[in-house]
Amino acid sequence: MDRAEVGALVQSAVDGDAAAWKALVEGLSPLVWSVVRAHRLSDADGHEVYQTVWFRFAQHLGRIREPDKAGSWLASTARNECLKVIRGLTRLLPTDDPQVLDRISEDRTPEQSLIDAEDQADEARRIRMLWQEFEELGDRCRQLLRVLMASPPPSYVEVSAALGIAVGSIGPLRQRCLRRLRARLDARGAV
């Protein structure tokens, strides 16, 4: 999300505009979710961290010093809460297995459905292979890429707040991590 836009939405939300709050949540909750997932908490802990971050953001809404940096505020709050969980915890568990893709049902001829189903199965296999290789990257690469893949994509300032990495090193590290992932995929013969 564009910083000027975020700043304006925060101001409107402070003034009581519920639609502005909705737009902030829609634009920035994928970032918060990505930060939580990047830290590999259990589902229960991750969900609680996510809620804590948004409750605190709502609470601090009118007091945030730099409204245009609300994305960074959310990202660093999420990071701190994740680190607290990890520090306080023996409850740390690996994330669940990726869920099975939902079937899409549409009005199609049986032949077309069969072709579609095969295409979809190929696509699903490809996505799962990509995800598997991503999950097996080293922790630091996995974390960085998990935050970067939020949609809409976060700014490097937000990524920096989310992971405590200097802004200037994010570009080169991203490049190396993606290259490493590509190499793993190539080694598996993925397209």
Binding site: L101, L130, F134
Partner: peptide, 9 residues
């Protein structure tokens, strides 16, 4: 990856 995350996570 962004597309995969939207489906799997």
């Amino acid at each position: 990856l962004r597309g995969a995350a939207a489906v799997l996570d």
